[in-house]
Amino acid sequence: MGYQLNFGWIPQYMPVLLHGIGITIYLIAVGAVAGCILGIVCAWTRALGPVWARPPVAAYVELIRNTPFMVQLFFIFFGLPSLGVQMNELQAATLAMIVNLGAYSCEIIRAGIQATPKGQFEAGASLAMSRIQTFRHVVLIPALQRIWPALSSQIVIVMLGSAVVSQVAAEDLTYAANFIQSRNFRAFETYIVATVVYLGLSILLRFALDALGWVLFPRRKAAR
């Protein structure tokens, strides 16, 4: 085709790329931690919480899981200001990530909680543990351990989905790629570089989550 690949632009745009990588890492770090906390709260509500609170949480989970992330992002960024909730693009992107991961992790964690044998609750109660204590030590930790692989996969999926936040000008890695290719018109090379970086990020993230699993659940082997 006579088209020559040219990567000579990389040094010139390195700061832009690094900035984008930094934002993507920030988004996934904050999104994963806050999203999982939200997921735990929602999972508790759906499985063991007050009955009146269950339908709204179920509606939230179903709504998020059945619409594309991009539409959710647009609603938060363009829709919420009309209700007086103003936030910048990075806050909107972060919130969208949290809300999205919260719904998915809720379902994953709930499955883990529901797999808890009934005797465990009774055992917890017989040790004079409070409900919260029972939940934390007897239900949640083993549940998280059970579903850790599924949760890890979901976090990686959400990280890759974060490519969409560039649509509201949040300056993540995809934004950097789009910014660069709008300047140098070298779209293939730019997207190849971005794809390789994403692959590296997801492999690193997976390693980090596996390592975290070993730290959080040291009795993993003994439990099995």
């Binding site: 890759l160 490519a163 995809t174 971005a194 997801s202």
Partner: peptide, 10 residues
């Protein structure tokens, strides 16, 4: 391990 967006483009 890579975004679907990038796969589509490439």
């Amino acid at each position: 391990g890579t975004p679907l967006l990038m796969q589509l483009f490439l």
